[in-house]
């Protein structure tokens, strides 16, 4: 089958890890790896993998608009505003890795299919990818008064953009939690722990509900965890759901695939696995459309 051509904008941890996952995908092809500095570690890595690189940022795509069909934007929320205006006019599909809140929020285990009709899909945040499916399961089984999500990540796994954008991380995750759980009152906390050896990403969901029904919740949680594991192999339920101290508690741990950063960086891995799953779904949909068109074409 014909592979979908993607460009990766942003050569930091997220961008470089996406590159390695793209190269492994049977349906994606990396047409360009774009940053601002040819000597950055990500660029060096891309170059050594034989991928076409550029240090011209969004201009690299503007000047060669036919080089790709889909763009991963792994820069920052502020830069994404400008990038989207350019990419929109070029008719590209965009998967936004930043917490910009411009595109349709996508959690593949919940709403992958409707997202494939959108041109700008937002991957929310790493903590959001880990916790929102649980909050969604909660919302399907309970009348929820309050949801809170705490993620602890290894300091080494969060790069300068994540650190600078910590407020956007918190607020975007809170908005998405509310959207997918149906509960208006949400809270997000992010803790960075510098312990060595590095800690794995861990996320805890706390909730206050009217009438706890652990049996129904347990079923929903197990089902959605299995769905996530289909695209995030290192995702696992650590504890719960339990009801203690008048609150529901569910804990998950996310280990990464160890593609660009080591396995402890589950935070980076989960958002990237979700983005790749989304891009692959776009690729499969395109392929299907092509095949359908071909089979319906009049024969000469």
């Amino acid at each position: 089958m014909k592979k979908l051509k993607v460009a990766i904008l942003g050569s930091g941890n997220i961008g470089t890890d996406l590159l390695i996952k793209t190269l492994r995908s049977p349906v994606l092809e990396c047409a360009a790896f774009i940053g601002r500095n040819l000597s950055s570690p990500g660029m060096t890595r891309a170059n050594s993998l034989g991928v076409k690189i550029s240090d011209r940022g969004i201009e690299a795509i503007r000047s060669e608009p036919d080089s790709c069909d889909l763009v991963f934007d792994a820069t920052s929320a502020i830069d994404h505003r400008h990038h989207w205006s350019v990419l929109q006019s070029l008719g590209k599909i965009v998967i936004d890795m930043t917490p910009s809140k411009i595109g349709t929020m996508c959690i593949p285990a919940i709403n992958l299919d409707p997202c494939l009709d959108q041109r700008n899909v937002n991957m929310v945040t790493c903590g959001g990818q880990a916790s929102i499916p649980l909050a969604h399961a909660l919302g399907r089984t309970h009348e929820v008064d309050y949801v809170e999500v705490v993620s602890s990540i290894a300091s080494r796994s969060s790069g300068p953009a994540t650190r600078l954008n910590i407020d956007e991380y918190v607020e975007t995750t809170e908005d998405a939690l509310a959207f997918f759980s149906g509960c208006a009152k949400t809270k997000t906390i992010l803790i960075q722990n510098p312990a060595v050896p590095c800690i794995d990403m861990q996320t805890t969901l706390f909730a206050k509900v009217k009438q706890p029904n652990l049996e129904a919740l347990d079923r929903e949680v197990k089902a959605i965890v299995a769905k996530i594991q289909a695209y995030v192999p290192g995702y696992r339920l650590l504890a719960g759901p339990v009801y203690e101290n008048n609150r529901i508690v569910i804990m998950v741990k996310v280990q990464g695939l160890g593609d660009y950063l080591p396995r402890y960086a589950g935070n980076l891995d989960i958002i990237n696995c979700a983005a790749i799953a989304t891009a692959e779904a776009f690729a499969n949909k395109n392929e299907k459309k092509d095949t359908d068109q071909r089979s319906h074409a009049p024969r000469r």
């Binding site: 803790i191 312990a195 861990q202 805890t204 504890a239 508690v249 804990m251």
Partner: peptide
């Protein structure tokens, strides 16, 4: 031993379990 930092109260439950 696990070098927990302020804000990691959820780990208390996990370690206790």
């Amino acid at each position: 031993r696990r070098k927990v930092v302020a804000g990691q109260e959820d780990l208390i439950i996990e370690v206790a379990m």
